[in-house]
Amino acid sequence: MSKLFNNYLRDFIEYLRIEKNYSAYTIDGYNRDIEEFFLFINEQGTAALDHIEYFDVRLYLTRLYEKQMARSSIARKISSLRSFFRYLVREKVIKENPFTLVQQAKEAKKLPSFFYEEEMKELFAVCEGESPLQIRNKALLELLYATGMRVSECAAIELKDIDFEMSVILVHGKGQKQRYVPFGSFAHEALERYISEQREELMKSVKKHDYLFVNHRGTPLTPRGIRYILTKLISEASLTGTIHPHMLRHTFATHLLNNGADMRTVQELLGHAHLSSTQIYTHITKEHLRKTYLSHHPRA
């Protein structure tokens, strides 16, 4: 790829980081999607940005479909590239956005997957132990389940964000929005034990910092590091099916609603800007009620 393209991509990434305030994880996705497209474009012999046409875009989409890529993944790539070319038009680098005419068929929204309470017990069981990392992992899992925060939000938590007296935590959400989320006695106990007994032990060989969760070297845990830990715990618990760490957030919301919490409260706790984002969980709770009814009513 040309030096000029790299400069434009770097400027776009800065725009996403500063003006759009996107997370590092989201920005990495944009960067990867754009670079993959331009590797393909170079293979086709198209040298200049303003030479890319709708026909090139269709060729690229054909390549993605030939790879049998998931429609959701293709839709994400189109969105990333459409945004990049829109930025180039805005900056007067090119005249037209070749992705303007691309329409991606929308998939029916899938219901969020979640863990049942028995599955959560299995997850917590694999965290039991006396080693520093086991104590840290239990605190991490307890906090995520207690608050429903995103993995990226969890990585950003500092010691000063936790109020043990009130049992609330200040979460730094998307778009620089902040919210206070309470946590229960199990998370309270696990956090206090981790901070008082093991955090300093893990950090003994590095310069002190205030981030709550640290890795085995004592440096702050990244979102990727937290995902790795959760994936490993899920694997050790031998839970079946398609599982991903974000399910803890879905589980938090689903269990609250199943136990009588109101929608607005759950929306606020999750940090959703719109109630419609939270309402998808009502479909899960209705399905849960239906299955419970069919399983237990004598004339179902």
Rank of each mutant, 00 (worst) to 15 (best):
P132V: 01
V57M: 12
K110P: 06
G173T: 08
Q104A: 13
R150Y: 10
L212E: 03
H288C: 02
Y228P: 03
R90Q: 14
Y60W: 15
I78C: 12
K208W: 00
H51C: 00
F12K: 01
L133H: 03
A75R: 04
Q103E: 15
Y25L: 09
N137Y: 01
E43A: 12
S2Y: 09
V93S: 06
Q104R: 02
D161I: 01
I13F: 07
S83I: 00
F124V: 01
Q103M: 13
V181H: 09
P132H: 03
R86S: 14
I74G: 09
P112M: 11
T26D: 10
R199Q: 10
I226Q: 05
T265Q: 12
Q103A: 13
S72P: 03
I284C: 10
R90S: 12
N7H: 09
I243N: 02
K291P: 11
H297L: 01
F213T: 04
L248D: 07
T219N: 12
E43G: 12
D163F: 07
F84Q: 05
S73D: 12
Q267G: 09
L191G: 01
I243R: 08
A273S: 15
Y22Q: 11
E43N: 13
K207C: 00
F99Q: 02
H209R: 04
S79G: 09
K110A: 12
S79E: 06
F186Y: 14
E66P: 05
H51I: 00
Y293F: 15
L4E: 15
K3V: 02
K20N: 11
V89Y: 08
T222V: 02
Q134S: 11
A139H: 01
M69G: 08
R86W: 00
T292V: 14
L16P: 08
L191S: 08
L170E: 08
S238A: 11
S73T: 14
V151N: 01
P132K: 02
N258Y: 05
T254F: 08
N7W: 01
S83Y: 00
E128K: 03
T46S: 06
R299G: 00
E201P: 00
K291D: 15
N97H: 07
P220H: 04
K208Q: 10
K232S: 13
E268V: 07
F213L: 10
G184A: 10
H297A: 06
F213P: 02
R179T: 06
A187R: 06
P220A: 00
I229R: 05
Y293I: 01
M120R: 04
L88S: 04
A105T: 13
T222I: 07
D28C: 03
E200H: 08
R90W: 10
M69L: 15
S205E: 14
Y30A: 05
Q44R: 14
L16N: 09
Y228W: 10
S167I: 02
I169L: 12
P182L: 05
I94N: 00
L191T: 03
E287N: 15
G175K: 06
E287H: 11
D11N: 13
R82P: 03
S113Y: 02
M69Y: 12
S235K: 12
M203C: 11
L294E: 15
N42K: 11
R71L: 13
Y22G: 04
Y30D: 02
T254P: 10
L64R: 10
E142A: 05
